[in-house]
């Protein structure tokens, strides 16, 4: 029984450490553009304890940068970037640059996917268990690499279309939403991958009406981490871990006393 209780306490400590890890990761990324808080919750179910992890896709504050290739999303949606292996990843980080060949790149250095009338774009997904590609979704938008003309000033239109000041169309930023964004797989660098569990991928309704997604030029979305809340949660977790350690100590002392009582009287 003592051992069983000790293992139970160790399990609780492990869970709290996992929670602590999430809070520390959040604090580390408090100043990362577009970073979303990780939320780990524990639930009592008939099948035992269940852990549920999700990113809190709540808007961070849009910070003005006045840089023409900085874009922030207000409302639902993700920018789409093409990974080196040809798959597509999704990000809220709209800090774009122009590559050596004039292509529009994300802050991670991956091409930003925009609409183009000539090439149909198919989004790919991975299998969470095997990591292999498991399917594709026709998102109903079109894509190809986006090139910014040399020396051009990029202007964003309300519907997400990028144009030069002279009126030449560069491309339309692909902003997509998911049926179940909680299931997006975090691969670091503020990038996420879609999977079967994310459900349908749809083009976001871009506009300035209420309920629509708005893209702003010259702004970047801050992380939505609340350092104060995280610090308070860390203090609470610290107390819980100490309490579990206390239980282990008490169990150990009890076992020691019991052993000494029995052996003394043999």
């Amino acid at each position: 029984m003592y051992n069983q209780y000790t293992f139970k306490s160790m399990g609780a400590i492990n869970r709290n450490m996992k929670d602590l890890g999430g809070l520390v990761e959040d604090i580390n990324n408090a100043f990362t553009t577009g970073y979303k808080t990780k939320d780990i919750s524990f639930h009592e179910t008939l099948d035992g304890m269940k852990t549920y992890e999700r990113r809190q896709f709540i808007d961070g504050v849009a910070k003005k940068t006045n840089r023409e290739l900085d874009f922030s999303i207000e409302g639902k949606g993700f920018f789409e970037v093409e990974m080196p292996d040809g798959t597509n990843a999704y990000t809220r980080d709209g800090s774009f640059t122009v590559g050596p060949n004039g292509e529009l790149l994300s802050s991670q250095g991956y091409p930003v996917v925009t609409g183009h009338p000539d090439a149909e774009f198919i989004a790919q997904s991975y299998d969470a268990a095997t990591g292999e590609q498991s399917g594709s979704f026709d998102v109903g938008v079109h894509s190809s690499a986006t090139f910014v003309p040399v020396g051009a000033t990029v202007v964003l239109e309300e519907d997400g279309t990028l144009k030069t000041r002279e009126g030449q169309t560069i491309g339309k930023l692909n902003v997509v939403t998911f049926t179940n964004e909680d299931a997006l797989k975090d691969i670091g660098d503020s990038l996420y991958l879609a999977g079967k569990e994310t459900g349908d991928i749809k083009e976001a309704e871009i506009g300035s009406f209420e309920g629509q997604t708005r893209i702003r030029q010259g702004y970047l979305e801050s992380s939505n981490v609340s350092i104060v809340k995280n610090m308070s949660d860390i203090v609470q977790l610290n107390t819980a871990i100490k309490a579990e350690m206390k239980i282990i100590k008490v169990l150990d002392q009890m076992q020691e006393n019991l052993t000494s009582t029995i052996t003394r009287n043999i």
Partner: peptide, 20 residues
């Protein structure tokens, strides 16, 4: 008393369980 310790332990390990 050991049973009671088990209960206290259950409480402590669920201090951050939603709705426990």
């Amino acid at each position: 008393s050991i049973k009671r310790i088990g209960i206290i332990q259950t409480n402590m390990q669920n201090f951050n369980t939603v709705g426990f």
